[in-house]
Design a protein around this nucleic acid. Structure first.
Length: 447
RNA sequence: GCCCCCAUCGUCUAGCGGCCUAGGACGCCUGCCUUUCACGCAGGUAACACGGGUUCAAAUCCCGUUGGGGGUGCCA
């Protein structure tokens, strides 16, 4: 029989990077073993559930490319089944009714206003083999009777989880280490139901710089936010796959399909992993560079569309944009870097960046002479890359400085910034001579 | 408090008793390339938490210490 795994998020917010990693490792296990990946929404907590969050969750999973084979199933729809199991446990006196003060109440019929607790056996040791952690054991004497049915008539997580896993034939429960200490209780429930126990694999937690579990409050954990900040889904899953696991051949940046080939849940390590934005950026930049041009253009759309772009819509020019893409794609860390590499093309004025101005115009020597010289020479040179480069080079030679220094004031005059696309190509291919001369002239008078 | 888990460069990891004077990657630093930036290339920096065992041999096994984390809800 092939493995059946599930990703079972609760819909209490957008997809969290920690959850995404759990989803990914489940997906990888299913795909690499030819198993089945089930999606189940654990929405038993009516109070905290926000139905509208589910759609975000699903679309973010889709965005990451983690397609599921079955579901989404909604746990809330199994309420009668959960009730049936709880009632059975009550009938067999493996559970008991209790009131708001946790006092035992006589009777064995589920009733509104009363919760149901599972009776913890005495003096037993619950031991199980975790695929990543090895043998783990708990003494039942350290555990308390726990609630499996709320007084408001809904099942508790542990109960619903155990019942659903059993009913759905889940063979492997792959999830975060924060759920490790709940295992003995689930095992007891499964045993009481006479259901088989799944194989567990508890993944190391993802932590912040303080080594604390990533949290919604403190940390940047929303997958949607990363998407909106210009990270590619393939970079996201690639990076996430590297937290708690490493490819045997040491090649870290690669397509998901290759990771599927190499992944084995047994190889996952135990220590918590710091979510390192720097490395994510590196992985993202690498994937960004490898995109085919038409693919890149497609993905970049949200950043250059009318409503998002920093330039007026009517100034945008498709042809010039496509030319600029060739010049800047390799320079980006994220897609959101794109606008500031090309905005000056579609703006009336170069961007005003005080730091750049100070560095290239105020602090650097000969700024005025360079602008003067290039203005004159650009007036009648051939308007193409090599000719422009020659002109600027010559101006620098006359002043005894290298091209790297000479281009700086020109770049700031034209683009507004010290960093940007290749200057001469940009000027020759995407700007008019008149516009360039105007900008140089304006910079001169500002000096 | 109690229970459980974890411990290799700053970070992510390789290592599953001898191949380790510990490998790779990110970051950082140096140089080269170069029209800025980025890429690329060549180098460099930097780790087995500590103490006991076991063994001919330990980063790898065992015990303890210390440190960190998770759990301990009628949340999931």
């Amino acid at each position: 029989m092939s493995d059946r795994v599930r990703f079972a998020p609760s819909p209490t917010g957008f997809l969290h990077v920690g959850s995404a990693r759990t989803a990914l490792f489940n997906w990888l296990h299913a795909r690499s073993t030819g198993g089945t990946y089930v999606l189940r929404i654990e929405d038993t907590d009516a109070e905290r559930n926000r139905p509208e969050m589910t759609s975000g969750l699903l679309s973010e999973l889709e965005w990451l490319g983690l397609d599921w084979d079955e579901g989404p199933f909604y746990q809330s729809e199994q309420k009668e089944r959960h009730r049936e199991v709880v009632q059975d446990l009550l009938d067999r006196e493996l559970a008991y009714l209790c009131d708001g003060d946790n006092e035992l109440v006589k009777g064995n019929q589920i009733r509104d206003g009363l919760a149901v607790r599972f009776r913890m056996p005495k003096n037993e040791v619950i031991e199980f083999e975790d695929v990543v952690r090895g043998s783990v054991s708990f003494a039942t004497d350290d555990l308390e009777d726990f609630v499996i049915w709320r007084s408001n008539g809904t099942p508790m997580f542990l109960l619903a989880n155990a019942v659903d896993d059993a009913d759905m034939g889940i063979t492997h429960a792959i999830r975060g280490e924060d759920l490790l200490s709940g295992v003995p209780k689930v095992l007891l429930l499964l045993q009481a139901m006479d259901a088989p126990q799944p194989t567990y694999a508890h993944l190391p937690l993802l932590v912040n710089e303080q080594r604390k579990k990533l949290s919604k409050r403190r940390d940047d954990v929303s997958i949607a936010d990363y998407r909106d900040r210009g990270y590619l889904p393939e970079a996201m899953v690639n990076y996430l796959s590297l937290l708690g696991w490493g490819p045997p051949d040491d090649i870290e940046v690669r397509p998901l399909e290759e990771i599927v080939q190499l992944f084995a849940i047994e190889d996952v390590n135990k220590a918590a992993a710091f979510f390192d934005l720097k490395k994510l950026e590196f992985v993202n930049a690498t994937h960004l560079r490898e995109l085919k041009k038409n693919d890149f253009v497609e993905r970049a759309k949200p950043w250059v569309e009318d409503k998002a772009a920093p330039w007026p819509p009517d100034k945008f020019d498709e042809g010039r944009y496509l030319t600029m893409v060739d010049l800047v794609q390799e320079k980006l860390r994220t897609l959101s870097d794109l606008p500031r590499f090309i905005d000056f093309i579609f703006l009336d004025e170069p961007v005003d960046d005080p730091d750049s101005w100070h560095k290239a115009m105020v602090k650097a020597p000969f700024a005025s002479e360079i602008l003067e010289g290039t203005f004159t020479a650009l007036t009648d040179c051939t308007w193409e890359t090599e000719a422009i480069k020659e002109v600027v080079t010559k101006v620098g030679e006359n002043l005894g400085i290298k091209l790297g220094k000479t281009q700086a004031p020109v770049r700031v005059a034209v683009t507004g910034r010290t960093v940007g696309p290749p200057l001469f190509e940009t000027m020759a291919l995407c700007m008019d001579r008149e516009e360039v001369l105007n900008r140089i002239s304006r910079a001169r008078s500002r000096l």
